[in-house]
Design a protein around this nucleic acid. Structure first.
Length: 152
DNA sequence: GCCAACGTTGGC
DNA sequence: GCCAACGTTGGC
């Protein structure tokens, strides 16, 4: 089982929204970055755990945990003319973008801020520290548990 | 709203 | 394939 971090803008879709969604599940659509897509397509597996990270908001950081309930399949929004995520170069036969489904698991006792993560020298690998803008990133076992410790 | 960092596009 | 121009992300 692997660990991940998914970014979301809570003004658009927050961890609370996931918690109150039907079946507490959502389709993680709209990822339009090849590196992030490749992680979802190739490496995100059923049962993997995901830190839900809130970006571009008042309290930037890791808000809680979700779990993967469906592995990669074509992102329906790429075919939807009315969607912001529509991609004219994607066809049903040759989809370009994929999604996975995730289910709510829990909120952390407190949000672990980006600032605190950057200041914690025990967290070494996570792409967040390097100013990366990846929206889907792997989290090492060590970093995962360090972040959870910070929420205690 | 600013701006740095990064990704993508397109001319050559 | 290079690289400049442009667009986007995302913290502040």
């Amino acid at each position: 089982m692997a660990y991940w971090l998914f970014k979301t803008e809570p003004d658009a879709f927050s961890l609370d929204d996931l918690k109150s969604a039907a079946k507490q599940t959502t389709t993680w659509e709209g990822v339009r970055n090849y590196q992030a897509r490749n992680f979802m397509r190739d490496d995100v597996k059923l049962g993997d755990l995901v830190m839900i990270y809130h970006s571009s908001c008042k309290q930037v950081g890791v808000a809680g945990i979700a779990t993967v309930t469906a592995e990669a399949y074509p992102d329906p929004s790429q075919f939807d003319l009315n969607s912001d995520y529509y991609d004219a170069k994607a066809t049903v036969d040759t989809p370009r973008w994929v999604v996975v489904d995730v289910a709510y698991q829990q909120h952390l006792n407190k949000l672990v801020s980006l600032k605190a993560i950057k200041e914690n020298d025990a967290i070494t690998e996570i792409a967040l520290k390097k100013g990366g803008r990846l929206s889907i990133m792997p989290v090492t076992n060590n970093d995962w548990h360090e972040i959870l410790k910070m929420a205690e």
